[in-house]
Amino acid sequence: MDSEIFLSNMQQEDLEAAMDLKTAEGWNQTQADWELFLTQHPRLCLVAKAEGKTVGTVTAFAYEHKLAWIGMMLVNPLFRRKGISKRLMLELMDRLSFCPTIKLDATPAGQFVYEKLGFKKEYSLFRWIRKPVSLLPNNDLSPWVFKLGILELRDLLELDAQVFGANRELVLRHIWRSLPGGAFVCREQGGIKGFLLCRKGSRYIQLGPMVAENDTIAKALLHQALMQLGEKEAVLDMAANRSEMKTWLEQQGFEMQRELIRMYLHTNACAGIPEKYYLMAGPELG
Protein backbone atom coordinates (compact mmCIF):
# COMPACT_ATOMS: atom_id res chain seq x y z
CA MET A 1 0.00 0.00 0.00
CA ASP A 2 1.37 3.42 -1.00
CA SER A 3 2.18 5.90 1.73
CA GLU A 4 -0.13 8.88 2.01
CA ILE A 5 1.52 12.11 0.81
CA PHE A 6 0.93 15.41 2.59
CA LEU A 7 1.91 18.87 1.31
CA SER A 8 2.75 21.67 3.72
CA ASN A 9 4.72 24.88 4.05
CA MET A 10 8.43 24.34 4.50
CA GLN A 11 9.68 24.97 8.03
CA GLN A 12 13.15 25.56 9.42
CA GLU A 13 13.22 21.98 10.69
CA ASP A 14 12.76 20.71 7.11
CA LEU A 15 16.05 22.20 5.92
CA GLU A 16 18.22 19.28 7.02
CA ALA A 17 16.12 16.86 4.98
CA ALA A 18 16.02 19.32 2.07
CA MET A 19 19.82 19.51 2.12
CA ASP A 20 20.00 15.71 2.11
CA LEU A 21 17.77 15.56 -0.99
CA LYS A 22 19.89 18.22 -2.68
CA THR A 23 23.15 16.47 -1.83
CA ALA A 24 21.87 13.14 -3.13
CA GLU A 25 21.26 14.80 -6.52
CA GLY A 26 24.73 16.35 -6.55
CA TRP A 27 23.38 19.90 -6.55
CA ASN A 28 25.39 22.90 -5.38
CA GLN A 29 23.09 24.90 -3.09
CA THR A 30 23.99 25.71 0.50
CA GLN A 31 21.80 25.96 3.58
CA ALA A 32 22.10 29.74 3.29
CA ASP A 33 20.45 29.49 -0.14
CA TRP A 34 17.52 27.53 1.31
CA GLU A 35 17.21 30.06 4.11
CA LEU A 36 17.03 32.88 1.56
CA PHE A 37 13.97 31.27 -0.04
CA LEU A 38 12.39 30.46 3.30
CA THR A 39 12.85 33.85 4.92
CA GLN A 40 11.84 35.91 1.89
CA HIS A 41 8.92 33.82 0.61
CA PRO A 42 7.79 31.26 3.22
CA ARG A 43 4.45 30.61 1.45
CA LEU A 44 6.31 29.76 -1.75
CA CYS A 45 8.45 27.03 -0.16
CA LEU A 46 6.66 23.68 -0.03
CA VAL A 47 7.50 20.17 1.12
CA ALA A 48 5.90 16.80 0.55
CA LYS A 49 5.91 14.42 3.50
CA ALA A 50 5.34 10.69 3.74
CA GLU A 51 5.92 8.26 6.57
CA GLY A 52 6.81 11.20 8.81
CA LYS A 53 9.70 12.45 6.68
CA THR A 54 10.29 15.07 4.01
CA VAL A 55 10.39 13.38 0.59
CA GLY A 56 9.95 16.32 -1.80
CA THR A 57 10.56 20.06 -2.07
CA VAL A 58 9.91 23.02 -4.34
CA THR A 59 10.58 26.75 -3.93
CA ALA A 60 9.84 29.99 -5.72
CA PHE A 61 11.30 33.47 -5.52
CA ALA A 62 9.06 36.39 -6.50
CA TYR A 63 10.71 39.39 -8.11
CA GLU A 64 8.61 42.55 -7.65
CA HIS A 65 5.40 40.50 -7.77
CA LYS A 66 5.68 40.41 -11.54
CA LEU A 67 8.13 37.57 -12.17
CA ALA A 68 8.42 34.37 -10.12
CA TRP A 69 11.19 31.80 -10.43
CA ILE A 70 10.53 28.17 -9.52
CA GLY A 71 13.36 25.93 -8.38
CA MET A 72 14.54 23.23 -5.99
CA MET A 73 12.09 20.64 -7.32
CA LEU A 74 13.39 17.52 -5.57
CA VAL A 75 11.78 14.16 -4.86
CA ASN A 76 13.31 11.24 -2.98
CA PRO A 77 13.97 8.46 -5.54
CA LEU A 78 12.02 5.98 -3.40
CA PHE A 79 8.90 8.13 -3.75
CA ARG A 80 9.05 9.02 -7.43
CA ARG A 81 6.31 8.17 -9.95
CA LYS A 82 3.66 8.90 -7.33
CA GLY A 83 2.68 12.32 -8.68
CA ILE A 84 4.51 14.23 -5.94
CA SER A 85 6.27 16.71 -8.25
CA LYS A 86 3.02 17.43 -10.10
CA ARG A 87 1.15 18.06 -6.84
CA LEU A 88 3.88 20.36 -5.60
CA MET A 89 3.89 22.27 -8.90
CA LEU A 90 0.12 22.67 -9.05
CA GLU A 91 -0.03 23.94 -5.47
CA LEU A 92 2.83 26.37 -6.08
CA MET A 93 1.32 27.61 -9.36
CA ASP A 94 -1.91 28.30 -7.51
CA ARG A 95 -0.04 30.32 -4.88
CA LEU A 96 1.70 32.25 -7.66
CA SER A 97 -1.56 33.32 -9.28
CA PHE A 98 -0.66 36.94 -8.47
CA CYS A 99 2.37 36.76 -10.78
CA PRO A 100 1.84 37.46 -14.51
CA THR A 101 5.03 35.60 -15.48
CA ILE A 102 6.41 32.38 -13.97
CA LYS A 103 9.71 30.90 -15.13
CA LEU A 104 11.91 27.88 -14.49
CA ASP A 105 14.86 25.99 -15.96
CA ALA A 106 13.93 22.44 -16.90
CA THR A 107 15.93 19.38 -17.86
CA PRO A 108 15.11 17.89 -21.27
CA ALA A 109 13.18 15.13 -19.47
CA GLY A 110 11.28 17.68 -17.42
CA GLN A 111 10.46 19.88 -20.41
CA PHE A 112 7.67 17.58 -21.56
CA VAL A 113 6.14 17.50 -18.07
CA TYR A 114 6.15 21.28 -17.77
CA GLU A 115 4.73 21.71 -21.26
CA LYS A 116 1.71 19.70 -20.14
CA LEU A 117 1.26 22.26 -17.36
CA GLY A 118 1.28 25.11 -19.87
CA PHE A 119 4.94 26.20 -19.85
CA LYS A 120 6.57 27.27 -23.12
CA LYS A 121 10.22 27.22 -24.16
CA GLU A 122 12.10 30.52 -24.19
CA TYR A 123 15.61 29.29 -25.05
CA SER A 124 18.19 26.63 -24.19
CA LEU A 125 21.11 26.88 -21.77
CA PHE A 126 24.12 24.70 -21.19
CA ARG A 127 25.96 24.11 -17.96
CA TRP A 128 29.74 24.33 -18.31
CA ILE A 129 32.17 22.96 -15.74
CA ARG A 130 35.87 23.53 -15.21
CA LYS A 131 37.68 20.99 -13.10
CA PRO A 132 40.40 22.21 -10.74
CA VAL A 133 43.36 23.46 -12.78
CA SER A 134 46.76 24.85 -11.90
CA LEU A 135 47.01 28.53 -12.76
CA LEU A 136 49.53 31.09 -11.72
CA PRO A 137 47.83 33.68 -9.51
CA ASN A 138 47.24 36.97 -11.26
CA ASN A 139 45.74 39.74 -9.17
CA ASP A 140 46.16 42.45 -11.79
CA LEU A 141 42.87 43.88 -13.00
CA SER A 142 42.44 45.02 -16.60
CA PRO A 143 42.31 48.81 -17.01
CA TRP A 144 38.50 48.70 -17.03
CA VAL A 145 37.68 45.83 -14.65
CA PHE A 146 37.40 46.68 -10.96
CA LYS A 147 36.59 44.79 -7.81
CA LEU A 148 33.00 45.37 -6.70
CA GLY A 149 32.15 46.35 -3.14
CA ILE A 150 28.84 45.75 -1.40
CA LEU A 151 28.02 49.47 -1.34
CA GLU A 152 28.51 49.66 -5.11
CA LEU A 153 25.87 47.02 -5.80
CA ARG A 154 23.21 49.71 -5.85
CA ASP A 155 24.96 51.18 -8.91
CA LEU A 156 24.20 47.97 -10.82
CA LEU A 157 20.56 47.54 -9.92
CA GLU A 158 19.05 49.53 -12.77
CA LEU A 159 21.21 47.81 -15.39
CA ASP A 160 20.53 44.37 -13.94
CA ALA A 161 16.78 44.98 -13.76
CA GLN A 162 16.72 45.99 -17.42
CA VAL A 163 18.68 42.92 -18.53
CA PHE A 164 17.08 40.36 -16.21
CA GLY A 165 13.55 41.73 -16.44
CA ALA A 166 12.92 42.62 -12.78
CA ASN A 167 14.66 44.05 -9.74
CA ARG A 168 16.53 41.39 -7.76
CA GLU A 169 18.54 43.39 -5.24
CA LEU A 170 18.03 40.86 -2.44
CA VAL A 171 19.40 38.03 -4.56
CA LEU A 172 22.40 40.02 -5.79
CA ARG A 173 23.32 40.97 -2.22
CA HIS A 174 22.93 37.33 -1.12
CA ILE A 175 25.26 36.15 -3.88
CA TRP A 176 27.83 38.87 -3.17
CA ARG A 177 27.94 37.95 0.54
CA SER A 178 28.75 34.33 -0.29
CA LEU A 179 31.95 35.29 -2.16
CA PRO A 180 32.85 39.02 -2.02
CA GLY A 181 36.21 38.39 -3.70
CA GLY A 182 34.45 37.06 -6.81
CA ALA A 183 32.58 40.26 -7.69
CA PHE A 184 33.76 42.49 -10.53
CA VAL A 185 32.47 45.43 -12.53
CA CYS A 186 33.54 46.82 -15.90
CA ARG A 187 33.50 50.60 -16.22
CA GLU A 188 34.31 52.59 -19.34
CA GLN A 189 34.08 56.37 -19.63
CA GLY A 190 32.31 56.50 -16.29
CA GLY A 191 29.57 54.06 -17.26
CA ILE A 192 28.95 50.46 -16.21
CA LYS A 193 29.40 48.10 -19.16
CA GLY A 194 29.08 44.84 -17.28
CA PHE A 195 29.45 42.98 -14.00
CA LEU A 196 30.02 39.48 -12.69
CA LEU A 197 29.13 37.94 -9.33
CA CYS A 198 30.26 34.53 -8.12
CA ARG A 199 28.63 32.34 -5.49
CA LYS A 200 30.27 29.85 -3.16
CA GLY A 201 28.31 26.62 -3.35
CA SER A 202 28.54 23.37 -1.44
CA ARG A 203 30.49 21.68 -4.26
CA TYR A 204 31.93 24.35 -6.53
CA ILE A 205 31.94 28.06 -7.38
CA GLN A 206 28.98 29.20 -9.47
CA LEU A 207 29.97 31.97 -11.89
CA GLY A 208 27.02 34.28 -12.45
CA PRO A 209 25.00 36.27 -12.86
CA MET A 210 26.98 38.18 -15.46
CA VAL A 211 25.69 41.09 -17.53
CA ALA A 212 27.88 42.49 -20.32
CA GLU A 213 27.56 44.78 -23.33
CA ASN A 214 29.50 42.38 -25.57
CA ASP A 215 31.75 39.31 -25.71
CA THR A 216 34.95 41.31 -25.13
CA ILE A 217 33.66 42.65 -21.81
CA ALA A 218 32.28 39.23 -20.85
CA LYS A 219 35.68 37.59 -21.44
CA ALA A 220 37.51 40.28 -19.44
CA LEU A 221 35.20 39.80 -16.45
CA LEU A 222 35.41 36.01 -16.61
CA HIS A 223 39.18 36.03 -17.05
CA GLN A 224 39.60 38.09 -13.91
CA ALA A 225 37.28 35.83 -11.92
CA LEU A 226 39.11 32.70 -13.06
CA MET A 227 42.45 34.22 -12.05
CA GLN A 228 41.03 34.99 -8.60
CA LEU A 229 39.56 31.50 -8.19
CA GLY A 230 42.80 29.77 -9.11
CA GLU A 231 42.48 26.00 -8.81
CA LYS A 232 38.88 25.94 -7.55
CA GLU A 233 36.29 23.98 -9.50
CA ALA A 234 33.82 26.28 -11.24
CA VAL A 235 30.54 26.02 -13.16
CA LEU A 236 28.42 28.42 -15.15
CA ASP A 237 25.11 28.43 -17.04
CA MET A 238 25.11 30.18 -20.42
CA ALA A 239 22.66 30.47 -23.31
CA ALA A 240 23.26 27.87 -26.01
CA ASN A 241 23.57 30.35 -28.88
CA ARG A 242 26.85 32.03 -27.87
CA SER A 243 29.24 30.34 -30.31
CA GLU A 244 32.22 32.67 -29.77
CA MET A 245 31.94 32.35 -26.00
CA LYS A 246 31.74 28.55 -26.31
CA THR A 247 35.09 28.45 -28.07
CA TRP A 248 36.66 30.75 -25.49
CA LEU A 249 35.34 28.69 -22.58
CA GLU A 250 36.83 25.52 -24.07
CA GLN A 251 40.19 27.31 -24.29
CA GLN A 252 39.91 28.09 -20.56
CA GLY A 253 39.41 24.41 -19.70
CA PHE A 254 35.60 24.30 -19.48
CA GLU A 255 33.59 21.34 -20.71
CA MET A 256 29.94 21.47 -21.74
CA GLN A 257 27.63 19.44 -19.52
CA ARG A 258 23.86 19.09 -19.41
CA GLU A 259 21.29 21.15 -21.25
CA LEU A 260 18.63 23.20 -19.46
CA ILE A 261 15.53 24.67 -21.08
CA ARG A 262 14.37 28.07 -19.85
CA MET A 263 10.57 28.08 -19.83
CA TYR A 264 7.79 30.52 -18.96
CA LEU A 265 4.12 30.30 -18.02
CA HIS A 266 1.40 32.75 -19.06
CA THR A 267 3.26 35.64 -20.73
CA ASN A 268 6.92 36.45 -21.20
CA ALA A 269 6.41 40.06 -20.17
CA CYS A 270 9.69 40.06 -18.22
CA ALA A 271 11.98 38.88 -21.01
CA GLY A 272 14.61 41.52 -20.21
CA ILE A 273 17.51 41.80 -22.67
CA PRO A 274 18.76 38.22 -23.23
CA GLU A 275 21.59 39.29 -25.54
CA LYS A 276 23.25 41.09 -22.59
CA TYR A 277 22.56 38.36 -20.02
CA TYR A 278 25.65 36.19 -20.36
CA LEU A 279 25.61 34.00 -17.24
CA MET A 280 22.61 32.99 -15.19
CA ALA A 281 22.41 33.18 -11.39
CA GLY A 282 21.49 29.48 -11.29
CA PRO A 283 18.49 27.28 -12.11
CA GLU A 284 16.84 28.13 -8.78
CA LEU A 285 17.27 31.92 -9.13
CA GLY A 286 17.08 32.73 -12.82
Rank of each mutant, 00 (worst) to 15 (best):
M210R: 01
M256E: 12
Q257V: 07
M73D: 02
R81S: 14
I205K: 05
Q12N: 10
K116G: 03
E231Q: 13
N167W: 07
S134V: 13
D160Q: 05
I5W: 01
M280N: 15
A281I: 13
D160V: 09
I70C: 03
P42W: 09
K116I: 03
R203E: 07
V113I: 15
S124E: 13
A281W: 04
R177P: 08
D20M: 10
T23S: 11
L15V: 11
A32T: 15
A269H: 13
F112S: 10
P108W: 02
E231A: 10
K200N: 13
T247K: 12
T267Q: 12
G110P: 03
Q206A: 09
R173W: 00
S124F: 09
Q11A: 14
K120N: 13
Q252P: 03
C270A: 15
M263P: 00
T267F: 06
L15Q: 12
K53Y: 06
A234C: 13
K276P: 04
D160A: 02
I175N: 00
P143F: 04
P180M: 09
D155I: 05
V145K: 00
G191F: 05
E64G: 02
Q29K: 03
F164W: 08
D160I: 06
A109G: 11
Y264D: 07
L260R: 08
E275V: 07
L285M: 12
L279M: 14
L90D: 10
D20W: 09
E188P: 04
K219H: 08
A271N: 09
A48E: 01
A109H: 09
I70D: 00
L151E: 14
R262W: 06
A166I: 03
Q228S: 08
G208E: 04
Q111I: 08
T30H: 05
F184T: 03
T54L: 10
S85P: 05
I129A: 10
G182C: 04
R130A: 12
D33V: 09
D20Q: 10
P180E: 06
A234Y: 05
Y123C: 07
F119P: 09
V171Q: 05
C186W: 10
N268I: 06
Q111H: 12
I84H: 00
D94G: 11
V47D: 01
G230W: 02
K147S: 15
S124T: 10
R127T: 15
S202I: 14
N268S: 10
V163A: 02
R177H: 14
R87F: 00
A234L: 08
T57K: 00
A212F: 01
T267D: 15
